[in-house]
């Protein structure tokens, strides 16, 4: 087993809210796992724990036989917000991680060029970060993450700010990279379609406390056709599960807000 989560729980002490409760998950090497669930159910928190940026309140996370205690370049994260450095330009941002990895200078340049071309941003390589669009920022962040070539990729809604056209292109690229390099990917998304398109298994999470509600294997061959009836049926089935809990939360919040107002 490549990545194993043993009943991981996370409680933020300053809020005392159980954000994650008894998350157990086993991921094979090379697996593509998508995590879906309502906003606020703890998806980003879960990725942070695996990244080693935060520690579980209880339980343990084992990667490649070793327990995770801190962050490392073997688990690159692509954050929900692009997290690029505004004092560096596009290319320097991609080079940033490569410098830490200690490649020779010329190799760094080659890798940066390769991935910037992959996300179609090579002609913007000298642009300062504030002069590119939100979607372009996400693509730079994607290039920066991929350039590090780590075996485990943790991606938090990486394509959420992109237009359909770009999503389509990048999905293809990501799938290709995943198949070619046999990376293990944990991919958080709000789009069930994306989850069914990419995953070997879809992890459906529920909120309050954040927990795994269901793990659904996706049996379809690749490349997948998002218009195939089986695909659509499975997508709708998962969507209804996610929506169910989302609607429940919306109702709860509404009631609470009303209660507050009456008080």
């Amino acid at each position: 087993m490549y990545l194993r989560l043993n009943s991981v729980s996370k409680l933020f002490t300053d809020t005392d809210k159980k954000t994650l409760q008894n998350i157990s998950l086993e991921v094979e090497e090379g697996e593509f796992i998508c995590i879906v669930g309502p906003s606020g159910c703890g998806k980003s928190t879960l990725l942070n724990l695996i990244a080693g940026l935060d520690h579980p309140t209880s339980g343990s996370i084992i990667l490649d036989g070793r327990e995770i205690h801190g962050p490392g370049a073997d688990r690159v994260v692509m954050f929900q917000e692009a997290a690029l450095y505004p004092w560096l330009n596009v290319k320097e941002n991609v080079l940033f991680g490569l410098q830490a990895a200690g490649h020779p200078k010329t190799v760094q340049q080659e890798i940066a060029e390769k991935y910037l071309k992959l996300v179609r941003l090579w002609q913007y390589k000298d642009y300062p970060i504030h002069q590119i669009s939100g979607g372009m920022k996400q693509r730079v962040a994607l290039a920066r993450a991929l350039a590090l070539d780590s075996k485990l990729l943790l991606m938090d809604e990486p394509f959420s700010a992109l237009d359909k056209q770009t999503i389509h292109i990048l999905r293809g690229e990501l799938e290709e990279i995943w198949e070619k390099h046999r990376k293990t990917i944990l991919y958080v998304t709000h789009s069930v379609e994306e989850a069914v398109y990419f995953s070997d298994r879809v992890v459906v999470m529920a909120e309050n406390p954040g927990r795994i509600k269901d793990i659904i294997p996706i049996p379809f061959d690749r490349p997948r056709n998002i218009e195939h009836p089986d695909f659509v049926a499975l997508r709708k089935q998962i969507l209804s599960q996610v929506q169910l809990s989302a609607r429940k939360i919306a109702a709860e919040e509404f009631d609470k807000a009303e209660g507050d107002e009456i008080k």
Binding site: L53, G70, P71, D74, V77, F79, E81, A83, Y85, L148
Partner: peptide, 16 residues
């Protein structure tokens, strides 16, 4: 904090 987190996950040591 996100700047620091991002750097840490890219394997940057504390001096750098």
């Amino acid at each position: 904090p996100i700047y620091i987190k991002a750097a840490k996950t890219m394997g940057v040591d504390s001096l750098h």
